[in-house]
């Protein structure tokens, strides 16, 4: 009466003791990690916030903030390389962000955008030069800097085993100024209920949660490291709209890194172009567009071309400095400057 179908075979293949032990150990670890450790951590984060210890910390924070510089971000000769014998990720970068601006940090992959942004929150230490956030060096006083900065990492790095509400609780425990109700309202506007588990969210939804966390801190400087990369066009538009409304309403300053120029053009008023680890353009967007024009590459005789690049129809274009009002789009300004870096690199080689 023996059967040969796969189901019977699977039933007859009983797990060995070793299999059971491995599975048991795995389950025990999962139980420990997900239930005991995470639950205990979440419980601890709900610890009352108005303790005398916290009051003294708050007083210290107020004292520190009273001496902060009014310039949100100043980068002076910043250089960073990850290994001694490797090329510099960023070198000799200097620029200052105007207060209340939304700055686009634009550049190709590997230009050093993330390195620069991470150094502003103390995640990277400069090998040369310095970064000053409200006049404070993040590598010397990271707590003061972190207290005044909201950060959205390149890939949403949230706890997959926790709910959105748990994240808000953690943020509220970490920052006294965290505006939980505003964060909930922002998330509700994009259809995200606090009860949802982060592990169930799409990449775009996770980015929205990360943005809500950063905006909820009511920080005066927001650092957004390519937050648009994982979003679809509609989500991108929503994300940027919420960013602009919140930043303008709070009088904050924001840095938004991206390699998609079209996205940042809608919301940013200042432009920093990074290429080959160096700052190649630092200008208000309107001025940049006004100062440059695009012409055909064959018509550049007698003119000082910044760079040559291919147009949308395959034609060769050149970016030139214009004496009168320029006609270049922001994308053309960026492309022209990046092309100039490529040309100088080729010449050096």
């Amino acid at each position: 009466m023996g059967t040969t179908d796969g189901w019977s075979d699977r039933r007859s293949a009983r797990p060995t003791r070793a299999d059971q032990a491995t599975r048991g150990a795995g389950l025990l670890y999962l139980l420990w990690d997900r239930l005991v450790r995470r639950w205990a951590a979440a419980l601890l984060h709900r610890w009352p916030v108005n303790t005398p210890w916290r009051a003294s910390k708050r007083a210290q924070s107020v004292r520190e903030e009273s001496v902060l510089d009014t310039v949100p971000l100043r980068i002076e000769g910043f250089g960073r390389r990850y290994k001694r014998n490797r090329p510099w990720a960023v070198r000799n970068a200097s620029f200052t962000l105007p207060k209340g601006s939304i700055t686009a940090l634009v550049g190709p992959n590997g230009a050093g955008k993330s390195t620069l942004i991470r150094s502003c929150i103390g995640f990277e230490r400069p090998d040369e030069g310095r970064v000053l956030v409200f006049g404070v060096d993040p590598s010397r006083a990271p707590a003061t800097v972190v207290r005044n900065v909201g950060y959205v990492p390149q890939t949403a790095s949230l706890y997959r085993g926790l709910s959105i509400a748990d994240h808000l609780t953690i943020a509220a425990a970490a920052r006294q100024a965290f505006d939980r109700s505003s964060a909930i309202a922002q998330l509700a506007a994009v259809g995200l209920a606090p009860t949802r588990m982060v592990g169930e969210l799409s990449g775009g939804e996770q980015a929205q949660v990360a943005l809500a966390l950063a905006l909820g801190t009511r920080s005066q400087l927001l650092l957004l490291d390519e937050p648009l990369a994982s979003l679809d066009p509609l989500a991108r538009r929503d994300f940027l709209a919420r960013l602009v409304v919140d930043v303008r309403a709070g009088g904050a300053t924001a840095v938004l890194s991206s390699h998609i120029v079209g996205d940042v053009e809608q919301v940013c008023d200042h432009l920093v172009v990074l290429g080959d680890g160096q700052v190649i353009l630092d200008s208000p967007i309107e001025r940049a567009k006004a100062e440059y024009s695009t012409i055909r590459a064959s018509e550049t005789a007698g003119q000082d071309a910044v760079g040559f690049f291919s147009g949308p129809h395959g034609e060769q274009l050149a970016l030139i400095r214009s004496a009168q009002s320029g006609s270049a789009t922001l994308e053309e300004v960026v492309l022209g400057h990046l092309a100039s870096v490529r040309r100088s690199r080729a010449e050096a080689a």
Binding site: S61, I121, F123, P142, A143, T144, V146, R147, V149, G150, Y151, P153, T155, S157, L158, Y159, R160, H167, I170, A171, A174, R175, A210, L213, A214, T217
Partner: peptide, 15 residues
Amino acid sequence: EARTAQTAWSLFPSR
């Protein structure tokens, strides 16, 4: 490993 440290360390002023 899970890169959650980025979120946590950007929220907590003191690591």
